[in-house]
């Protein structure tokens, strides 16, 4: 059962191939913990539900303008034509509004799901979609815990539509359109640390107005868009989701790939050699 020249090259070749592929697969969901991303703090105690941000957003992104208030149901989802919506909930403290859009997670599930890096977490903070890379597989939609990426099903050149925190405006030094135009000062733009500080300050200064919870501080491993509310978030239709990052859920599987790629071929070749009939020479 000694290894001969041919067998040796086989093992060598397989090991080489395994190492190449193993290396390719090595990189696993990375932590973004150290970067202080930019984001937005939304204060639903200040929001008056004017829905001006919906218009500003549509205008800034070349999407159809939303219709008049009377035609609109109180609770809607974002869609391929609406990157943000303001919903109206009847709560224990009366009517409360809440603005929905991409949360821009610090470790986004969509970006780790994307096999072409079309969904991309920028260093500035926004999670952006890059059409020239996207193949339209919609795995980002499967993975996003907030159901944010929307797909243009009725187009032969479909795009993924979602809030990109006005990435093009940020690049020219402007702030997101919705933040710039909010008449009630319900949106506050800054780095995550600034947002958390500001939110804490508001809660401390006005403990009766707010519930003592900052949604987005830890959800999905931390998001760049954070929420303050006068009522528990459950009453506003906000999902209770895991605090850990979503890409971490696939970490165990992805880490096992290189080891299987190295161990399996060696093991299989060994069993193959071992189960050969004794009366046969190892050569053939």
């Amino acid at each position: 059962m000694s290894i001969n020249r041919r067998g040796f090259f086989k093992v060598l070749g397989l090991t080489g191939a395994a190492l190449v592929i193993g290396r390719e697969m090595k990189a696993a969901p990375g932590g973004n913990g150290d970067i202080d991303f930019r984001g937005v703090l939304y204060d639903s105690a200040r929001c008056k539900g004017c829905r001006g941000c919906e218009y500003d957003c549509a205008e800034a992104n070349g999407l159809p303008l939303p219709g008049p208030a009377k035609d609109i149901p109180p609770i809607r989802h974002t869609s391929e034509t609406k990157r943000t919506v303001v919903n109206e909930y009847k709560t224990s403290k009366g009517t409360v509004f809440i603005k929905m859009q991409c949360m821009h997670c610090s470790e986004p599930a969509c970006a780790s799901a994307c096999l072409t890096q079309a969904m991309h977490k920028t260093k500035a903070g926004p999670v952006i979609w890059r059409g020239e890379k996207c193949m339209g597989c919609r795995y980002c939609m499967i993975s996003c815990p907030f159901d944010i990426p929307k797909f243009e099903y009725h187009s032969s050149n479909p795009k993924i539509q979602k809030c990109d925190m006005c990435y093009n405006r940020l690049k020219t030094g402007e702030i997101p359109a919705c933040v710039a135009n909010c008449p009630n000062d319900a949106l506050f733009y800054g780095t995550r640390r600034q947002l958390i500080k500001e939110a804490r300050k508001r809660i401390v200064e006005n403990p009766k107005l707010y519930v003592d919870y900052l949604y987005g501080e830890h959800e999905a491993g931390g998001t760049c868009w954070m929420y303050l509310s006068p009522v528990p978030f459950k009453e506003l239709g906000m999902k209770e989701i895991q605090k850990a990052s979503y890409p971490a859920l696939t970490k165990g599987f992805l880490y096992s790939v290189p080891s299987i790629f190295v161990l399996f071929p060696a093991l299989l070749l060994g069993i193959h050699q071992a189960t050969k009939k004794d009366n046969q020479t190892p050569e053939e």
């Binding site: 990375g30 780790s112 994307c114 072409t116």
Partner: peptide, 9 residues
């Protein structure tokens, strides 16, 4: 464009 963190990749 290798999305090496992706299971789909």
């Amino acid at each position: 464009n290798f999305g090496v963190n992706s299971v789909l990749f």
